[in-house]
Computed example of a mutant assay.
Amino acid sequence: MDSKFKEAAIYRRIAEYLKWVELGSDRLTENQRERLRSFLDKLHERNLVVVFDPEIPPDAHNKYGGWATVPRLPSDGELLIRLNEYTHLAIPDEAEVIWSMPDDRP
């Protein structure tokens, strides 16, 4: 992954999400918890999923491109990230639980 994509806010929320899942809320700052909670609430309330594709151009919401939140499709199930040619190898079958929309929030 090009390092510029790691500067995107969506990428940072995904990284915070994984840290929260693995280590718990106490390993995030209050600011990180608030941003992550807001991000997860947005995905849930608007029925959105995160997409990574290096061809996604920058826009007003993401100056680096590569990331977007888009309407959830039935094929997305409960996953936070849409599986595609760029993410399918990054999410092994046994990790599906980690990548599913959580019932609780940080």
Rank of each mutant, 00 (worst) to 15 (best):
M1Q: 09
M1V: 11
M1F: 12
K4T: 05
E7C: 09
E7Y: 10
A8Y: 06
A8W: 09
A9V: 14
A9N: 15
I10N: 00
I10R: 03
Y11Q: 02
Y11R: 01
Y11G: 03
Y11C: 03
R12N: 04
R12Q: 10
R13Y: 07
I14P: 03
I14S: 02
A15W: 07
E16C: 06
Y17E: 00
L18W: 08
K19W: 09
W20L: 01
V21F: 02
E22I: 06
E22H: 12
L23A: 03
G24H: 05
S25W: 03
S25Y: 00
D26M: 12
R27Q: 06
R27F: 12
R27A: 13
T29S: 09
E30V: 13
Q32N: 07
R33E: 14
R33W: 03
R33G: 04
E34F: 13
E34H: 13
E34K: 15
L36T: 02
L36P: 08
R37K: 12
R37F: 10
R37P: 00
R37C: 04
S38G: 13
S38M: 06
S38C: 08
S38W: 03
F39L: 01
F39N: 01
L40H: 02
D41S: 13
D41Y: 14
D41F: 07
K42I: 15
L43F: 06
L43I: 09
E45L: 08
N47W: 01
N47H: 05
L48T: 07
V49F: 05
V49A: 04
F52L: 02
F52N: 00
D53G: 12
D53H: 11
P54W: 00
P54C: 00
E55A: 08
E55T: 14
I56H: 05
I56L: 15
P57M: 01
P57A: 02
P58I: 06
D59L: 05
D59I: 01
H61S: 14
N62L: 06
N62P: 07
N62V: 08
N62Y: 09
W67S: 00
A68M: 08
A68V: 05
T69M: 15
R72F: 11
R72A: 13
R72P: 07
P74K: 13
P74T: 05
S75M: 12
G77C: 13
G77Q: 12
G77L: 10
G77V: 11
E78H: 11
L79P: 04
L80T: 03
I81W: 01
R82A: 13
R82I: 11
L83N: 12
L83E: 15
L83F: 12
N84I: 05
N84T: 04
E85M: 09
E85T: 02
Y86P: 01
H88C: 10
H88P: 03
H88F: 13
H88M: 14
H88I: 12
L89R: 07
A90G: 14
I91F: 00
P92D: 03
P92M: 02
D93S: 15
E94I: 09
E96Q: 06
E96K: 15
I98P: 00
I98Q: 00
I98H: 01
W99G: 04
W99M: 07
W99E: 06
S100R: 15
S100N: 06
M101H: 07
M101I: 02
P102V: 01
D103K: 10
D104Q: 04
D104S: 12
R105L: 15
P106C: 00
P106K: 00
